[in-house]
Design a protein around this nucleic acid. Structure first.
Lengths: 339, 339
DNA sequence: TTGTAGGCGTTATCAT
DNA sequence: ATGATAACGCCTACAA
């Protein structure tokens, strides 16, 4: 049998649909007696409002669009997945749900455009942002509400929340310095990576703060993979023995794993001959051998902040929110006193 | 400015909204001349149909509900997250999107009930099923379409797709046997776990097929964690030296990691003194040291199958689909010739 | 305080 | 072949 509608409730309670609506929307103009009659009818019939009809009437869906890029699903991807979870969780706190969709890495716009045009979502949350990100471009152009997890071209006036890679790396360096390390190298991403560049900046700032000079050959830039991490560390090992780093801070856990593998193969004892720090706290990083010291992105906080801003935005606010949230340093076994 | 509606298009083309609708829905009753006029108007105004209105009219949303349980987010959870991704991807192939939501582990029903009652989704995909699963109970009761990733109480007549844990473990054992192992132990989950019991069955079937006897003290049951994996292996090491297993097949990668850690601490060389197999292929498992041999759940296939069944279901089919899909054995370095 | 009625944007039935 | 019109279920001016 089909679900009861407001009409059914109205008939059951002997009132008009308007009255039912008033009761349901807590309009205080209804007499107590009628209200009770209506609520009883609602109860008896097990009536619940149809969301689609409400959506049509209100011209909003209480749905937030969130995309999974189809790229790099072969690599550990816990950050994005975990963020999707926390986003969904936070969204429920403002009475919204998340509509997920996927799109190829090249040419995502049509997928966003369709959702905008068909008015299927009220807003978007985007992640994996890049400089000149076409999605940001498109959404700003459309004046469509969105918040980004991640920054883009500096100066673009859109709402974002991001992990403070700079602060994170600086904290990592500080940790290493406190363990007595002075020859601290970094394995970073290519210069084209925005988040990578913030992390490099943090590395340099960390050195600076400790009064250590920045040495260009201590900074190796490479792609995001285990293999490239190995290679990067091999390059660092090619330095004269006296100049070889005693600690390496990495732009990601995956790269850190590569560094650790290479180090072990060269007979070094991790956390002892060599300290290693990662970034991301991949779920398995705590179970590596040795357990990896790393900088965890506070995805719950980020998601919650994103939703707060979105709520504001949907309500019509026009203030710009741009927020950095510092990662947490999780000290495990891969870092230790300099020997 | 608000989006154009059918009315706007009708005015622009000088026809009625009905005609516009006919054209858009490819009804062949419209004359070529009018069709062209309408399509031009659509083009000029950049008109796209409003999804909510369509939903209301059709009494369907083309949305599939999928829940993330809030439990165990601290443990590696790649299976569920990855499945969510593949589900979203597959759904798009039948023109559906996925609406995600979260719910506490205890008492999930109200969350499902709300979505059913408000008619916000056309169907559900559920995962993390258990025997007597209340969600299955509820949805069957309601006659609401759903497909489960995972089995439940044997005999319950609902649609599901599941990883064939039995076949997977049997294949794992076969691999170990082919390497010359005869003293093969298993670390499994408690008897209450349904998927755990299929995996144990596969372990026993694998032994059987190889003509090896099942020894009760080679089967250790424990919870899903690294620590309990360690303890389980410690228990196996308490056996008399001559009876100690040379290979351990585990119910999950996480447990396998525990086993490997314990083994290493006892001075064993993995893949040499001891072979270890996991289950799940967590993203980082390939980067463990040694890289873990494991059984990968074919989540893309499972998701695709789930969606195919769902499509059938939404179309009104009443056939029961229950499908097992075998995991893939991925041989890495943690298994080797018996010494 | 309650009811009537129009409209949100689309589709489908029935006329013409 | 095309157009009026009545739903789909809800909300809200406005009238009573």
């Amino acid at each position: 049998m089909p679900s009861p509608t407001m009409k059914d409730v109205a008939r059951e309670a002997g009132v008009s649909t308007a009255t039912v609506s008033y009761v349901l929307n807590r309009k205080s103009i209804v007499s107590d007696e009628t209200r009770v009659r209506v609520l009883e009818a609602v109860e008896r019939l097990g009536y619940i409002r149809n969301a689609t009809a409400q959506n049509l009437r209100h011209q909003r869906t209480r749905l937030i669009g969130f995309a999974w890029s189809e790229k790099a699903r072969d690599k550990p991807n816990a950050i994005l997945d975990n963020f999707a979870y926390h986003l969904t969780r936070s969204a429920s706190e403002i009475g919204c749900r998340v509509l997920t969709f996927t799109h190829p890495d090249e040419n995502p716009i049509p997928h966003y455009e369709d959702l905008v045009r068909t008015q299927r979502v009220d807003a978007f949350v985007i992640s994996g942002t890049e400089p000149e990100d076409p999605r940001i471009h498109f959404l700003m152009d459309e004046g469509f509400p969105f918040v980004a997890f991640g920054r883009s071209t500096p100066g673009w006036a859109f709402n974002w929340v991001d992990t403070d890679g700079d602060a994170g790396m600086a904290a990592g360096v500080e940790h290493l310095v406190s363990l007595g390390h002075e020859r601290i190298a970094m394995v970073g991403w290519p210069e084209t990576s925005l988040s990578g560049s913030y992390r490099v900046a943090g590395y340099r700032r960390g050195l600076d703060r400790a009064g250590l000079p920045f040495k260009p050959d201590y900074l190796v830039r490479t792609l995001h993979s285990e293999e490239t991490g190995r290679e990067a560390f091999a390059r660092l090992c090619a330095l004269p023995p006296k100049r070889r780093p005693t600690a390496v801070i990495c732009v990601s856990d995956l790269v850190a794993v590569g560094v650790m593998h290479e180090a072990r193969e060269r007979g070094m004892r991790l956390g002892d001959d060599l300290s290693v720090i990662g970034f991301d706290d991949e779920p398995m990083s705590q179970y590596l051998n040795p357990a990896l010291t790393t900088l965890a992105q506070p995805l719950d906080e980020i998601a919650s902040m994103v939703i707060t801003i979105l709520d504001d935005l949907i309500a019509g606010s026009t203030v710009l929110h741009q927020r950095l949230i510092a990662p947490r340093l999780i000290v495990r076994e891969s870092t230790g006193q300099r020997r």
